[in-house]
Design a protein around this nucleic acid. Sequence first.
DNA 1: CCGGCGAATGTGACCGTTCACATTGCCGTG
DNA 2: CACGGCAATGTGAACGGTCACATTCGCCGG
Lengths: 339, 339
Amino acid sequence: MSQAPASGRAPSIRDVARLAGVSHQTVSRVLNAHPSIRPETRERVLAVMGELNYRPNRAARALVTSRSATLGVLSASSAQYGPASSIRAIERAARAEGYFVNTVNVDGSDVGEIEAALTHLLDLGIEGLVVIAPQVRVFDALVSRGLDLPFVTMQSTGRQGDHALSVDQITGARRATRHLIELGHTRIQHLAGPLDWIEAEARIVGFHAELEAAGLPRVEPLVGDWTPESGYAAGQRIAREGGPTAVFSSNDQMALGLLHALRDAGLDVPGDVSVVGFDDIPEAAHFWPPLTTVRQDFDEFGRRCIGLLLAAIRSTPAEERALVPDLIVRSSTAPPRAL
Amino acid sequence: MSQAPASGRAPSIRDVARLAGVSHQTVSRVLNAHPSIRPETRERVLAVMGELNYRPNRAARALVTSRSATLGVLSASSAQYGPASSIRAIERAARAEGYFVNTVNVDGSDVGEIEAALTHLLDLGIEGLVVIAPQVRVFDALVSRGLDLPFVTMQSTGRQGDHALSVDQITGARRATRHLIELGHTRIQHLAGPLDWIEAEARIVGFHAELEAAGLPRVEPLVGDWTPESGYAAGQRIAREGGPTAVFSSNDQMALGLLHALRDAGLDVPGDVSVVGFDDIPEAAHFWPPLTTVRQDFDEFGRRCIGLLLAAIRSTPAEERALVPDLIVRSSTAPPRAL
DNA sequence: CCGGCGAATGTGACCGTTCACATTGCCGTG
DNA sequence: CACGGCAATGTGAACGGTCACATTCGCCGG
């Protein structure tokens, strides 16, 4: 039944128009759900589209509307659970809204690479940008380029209110710290992530704020790089130098290394040292001992990213309340032995 | 010095042409590195481009060439370490070749969603497709749609040779199993991934092949779902029912749950039961005990994916040798107690 | 000295859509 | 009963590149 038009190419709007006995513009109106189309006409056009297996040419549309329906995601270290989960959620949410997502992975410590990645995304013609795993320098690269693109980034330190999706890292860190304080710990150490990460910074701020609120002396954090290895190294140092009866780690992987090192040094967790992590990766419940940690809802985070970004693109106001992570208590924390 | 052309829009090829005193076609030739352009002319055009901060419009180019310079990635469960790492490597390799990458995340158990995701990618006009984390049904969806698109998938079971990037999962699984046999184990259990995953299937095949080669009786594997929880459940069952002195788990997360359950049941690893994992996720070295596992090189995998896919797109032949994973021996394996 | 060839460049059409602006035809209303 | 207005549709021109096909010019061989 189907009359194939000029066989070589994919069917265009005009092919559909011809077969449906209407003008190409009418077909376009059907595509864009224009109100003044007679239902009967619409049906006929849709039928022909189905018959020809027509699909609109995105490039042509993008050319004339200069809208690409594409969002960019700039991500560092996306093999980690948190970023990877966020990216997944972002993509799904964006797709549900009819957007395409293009993720670019960078080293994050290499400014040149960040610049190149940004150029790549700009070449693509993205309409908005999500910056995931934002190191301070990525943020700076955005600003210095002076791009007028709507963008969203995870924000926590109250840098500038715009573009910011608040995950209240500070409160999360305070909850972890308070938990240790309430158990009776007074000598608490923090194992931070790299200092140029906004998240790491926020968690340090929360840690210090809670210490201060409890009247405990300020403690300078140890610094890791998010990996279990750096947690192991920190654990060795703590075991060697002694001091804290509790450690709050800025993520779960470092906490794992910490557990490992403490055990290797003959220390008991939580008997000798309590450990709290951050993120609640799926493995955390099965660490030895199962890890007390702060749960982040990465899925919700991703959805909100898109909500905020699309609001910016469409210039609709978006109410935004911060996302607050929850403390999950497991068996890696207990009162200090002395009590 | 810069004379802004019709200020509203981004500069086009014709704006550049006018300012450089050449035709738009000459500008196009400069863009495409056409050989017969006088160096002097090229310089002049490039200078104007720089001055105007010109960037070619991707949509216009795609429209006329009908090439999108975009590759699609269809991924299930991309929050897991393996897939996430592969995706990252794929994106970087593709970008280095001038391609854009669009990743779509699906549930994988929902056929409708797979179809929808495929449609989404096709709408995008991708030139090639990488299927990561391929369940059998994803594979089927591709075939049933009869798409003529070049695509690559992780292949292991020798289904059809084309489109297949070989990671020799079978050999990897054999190495893990052989390691246990060489230690003296004779009662070995396998904890498999979901049976509709090609990788899970391949590892079962390898497990059985090695048992047979050693003259040991065939053992039906337990089945998990890749999560630590399913590993925990399997571990409880093993502890309750007894039997094996060694377990080969199809991934590291399940192995973690296994370790947890065995410990909870009062069994010692490796004293009572040896455990081998698969993947070598960054956490594996810090499990308790540190996990013997099979290391996959996901970065290399991603690069090869792109190599193979671009070869298919460009119709250039690609030599392809299988990627073989390595056994990493740590302390979760030891000879059985009886010896 | 002329014809031809290739290097360097120009001209206009075209890709598939949307946009701005007609053009119908019908209905209600003063 | 003429006419304004709106619903439904059509017409032609963009959008910003590339492609196919001129055109110009210098140079070389016969």
